[in-house]
Design a protein around this nucleic acid. Structure first.
Length: 318
DNA sequence: GGTAGACCTGGACGC
DNA sequence: GCGTCCAGGTCTACC
């Protein structure tokens, strides 16, 4: 990325924020258009600012907790574009979450205090998080990787993740034929149209005043969103009191926690096991799962996208 | 409320 | 190289 002619922004993150650890904290960091370079510890992706796509990189040159984040964009940015980049980066990195919240989590579950784990990566928009969740349902991880890559290549502007408006204009058959989304085609277009025509208002969904139970009811009504997807979208919204339990969870319950019985019984035991972590429940569950991956594949910020990053799920590690 | 089967893709496996 | 089997969460029909 040419630096001389580009724009440079600096962001002061919360005092505990460590880019390599907190960005490489959830599988979506491995999905297009996201790209983490383990060698340079630099994150790159294309953002759609509304009028055009912009390639950005994020670094933390000091490499220490709380160190200033440097965001570079290829080319000059207008003021509205700079604001859009700042907003998108802040959402991806969950920078609004104060250090005190993470400290509270560590008091509840001290296992992660030393490493400092507590923050989770997500997408710059709710829409991208929802579509990424749909592409992760009923499919093995390599297929999720392919679907997201092709969505960016075929529908996204300049390599960005497609906006709701662009996906809403697609025929389901195009997504099936060229993006490999299979039967998810109509559900993805349906969701995109709901976002694009205002039936789904992200600000309303992201309103902290909306009770968890009501939010879950709303999400379950959306096409392609069932109990697992709803709970996953909720954690991406920073609501960590619900566990998105899937076959990966059942494997974890059996192999790591030693639970016995059928899938439903194991899931019920997992729920009970993590209940004491209350509104931080998902963090405890997720970092336990993440620790399992890292013990076998090394620290997540060392994972190469095309090798380790495509085979890190528990089904590949049995 | 619970359950069975279809949905689609891609990897694993056997030949 | 080809065919078959299987994993994976949601949706619908049915009991």
């Amino acid at each position: 990325m040419p630096r001389a002619a580009g724009s440079r922004l600096t962001i002061r993150p919360p005092r505990d924020y460590l880019l390599r650890r907190d960005l490489c904290s959830y599988g979506y960091f491995l999905l297009e258009p996201n790209h983490w370079d383990p060698a340079t510890r630099q994150f790159r992706r294309v953002l759609d600012t509304g009028r055009r796509s912009v390639s950005v990189s994020i670094e933390q040159p000091s490499g220490v907790r709380g160190g200033t984040l440097v965001v570079r964009a290829a080319g000059a940015l207008s003021e509205p574009e700079r604001a859009a980049v700042r907003r998108d980066v802040a959402r991806m990195l969950n920078l609004h979450e104060p250090a005190e919240t993470i400290a509270e989590f560590h008091r509840l579950d001290p296992r992660w205090r030393r490493a400092g784990r507590g923050r989770l990566f997500r997408s710059p928009t709710l829409f991208e998080d929802v579509i990424k969740t749909v592409t992760s349902c009923n499919v093995a991880w390599p297929s999720t990787i392919n679907m997201n890559r092709r969505l960016c290549e075929v529908v996204g502007r300049g390599g960005a993740f497609p906006t709701a408006e662009r996906l809403a204009d697609c025929r389901p058959q195009l997504l099936r034929a060229r993006c490999g989304v299979g039967y998810r085609d109509a559900r993805i277009v349906g969701l995109a149209r709901m976002f694009a025509d205002g039936r789904i208002v992200p600000e309303a969904i992201e309103d902290p005043a909306l009770p968890d139970d009501r939010l879950r009811e709303i999400l379950i009504e959306w096409p392609g969103i069932g109990p697992y997807a709803a709970a996953n979208i909720m954690q991406l919204l920073g609501r960590y009191a619900h566990l998105p339990l899937d076959t990966e969870s059942v494997r974890h319950g059996r192999t790591v926690l030693g639970f016995r019985g059928g899938s439903r019984a194991v899931m019920r035991r997992i729920e009970r096991h993590f209940a004491p972590f209350a509104h931080h429940k998902f963090r405890s569950y997720w970092f336990e799962l993440w620790d399992f991956y890292e013990r076998r594949r090394g620290k997540s910020w060392t994972w190469e996208k095309r090798t380790t990053g495509s085979t890190f799920t528990a089904s590949q590690l049995k």
